[in-house]
Design a protein around this nucleic acid. Structure first.
Lengths: 129, 129
DNA sequence: TGCAAAATGAAAATGGTTGTCAAAATCGAC
DNA sequence: GTCGATTTTGACAACCATTTTCATTTTGCA
């Protein structure tokens, strides 16, 4: 009962960066897969719930997904131009978040951290913002 | 030409935490203000563009706004239950983001950092997740 | 005062995402 | 293998925050 979900997962794994549900759907159809948009959404949600893929929101509110190489907690360094993504660890940040939260009497502390930049390839190609 | 915008800004300033455009609109109408939803959206965008308010996205894709006390770069510690928000500085995080980006050959580095938790008042009231 | 430019807002359009529901695939028991 | 029950699927419609449109009102300024 997971053929579809695996197919979605595989498609995601073949991508360098974060992809939207619609992206994944379009790509799968192009490769001849018989799958509906609804199913792609459901598969991505299931994968995200199970911690198999990471989710984040673009500035225009789209959810984008990425197959993580590691199951451990990590953050992302994302190229704002081409979407290429590097997984990075930040023990110092984890500690900082925990400390800051505790200092103000907060409990059950979580955090979101994403770093954006222009990767070396992209900055070589075009300079203007 | 800024009466409306100021009114929106004021409404935002009276709030403890982040508010959605629809929230702000509803509240202004309740207080008798004659303003359209479109204008609220436009005002919030203008304020955000001008750096007068901070924007972030909720998990369900809604944009929420908050009047910052400081114009300087800072992050937020947000209570996930009541929305109460504390502005926090994190010099260590700034440096970390910059370093991590540079190490991987990225330029023009920016970052988003938000910390979530349950504030002391809320954790006293109810325990379950 | 007059008029051009900007602001306003009601209503319609947009678009990603979710809900609905009937058809198809899958599973388990016999 | 077969049959009914359960799950999965996907076309389509519904949702809803946000944006666009556009006609009207207000404002800026000579």
């Amino acid at each position: 009962m997971t053929t579809r979900r695996d197919a979605v997962h595989d498609t995601l794994r073949q991508s360098e960066g974060f992809r939207s549900a619609q992206d994944v759907y379009a790509e799968m159809r192009q490769h001849g897969a018989k799958i509906g948009l609804t199913t792609v959404y459901r598969a991505l949600q299931a994968l995200a719930d199970g911690g198999h893929v990471d989710v984040l929101r673009t500035d225009d509110g789209e959810s984008v997904y990425r197959a993580c190489e590691t199951g451990e907690h990590h953050h992302h360094l994302v190229c704002r131009r081409c979407g290429r993504t590097v997984e990075v660890a930040g023990p110092a940040v984890e500690r900082w978040a925990e400390t800051v939260g505790t200092e103000h009497g907060f409990t059950e502390i979580t955090h979101t951290v994403e770093v954006f930049g222009t990767c070396s390839s992209c900055s070589r190609v075009a300079r203007p913002a």
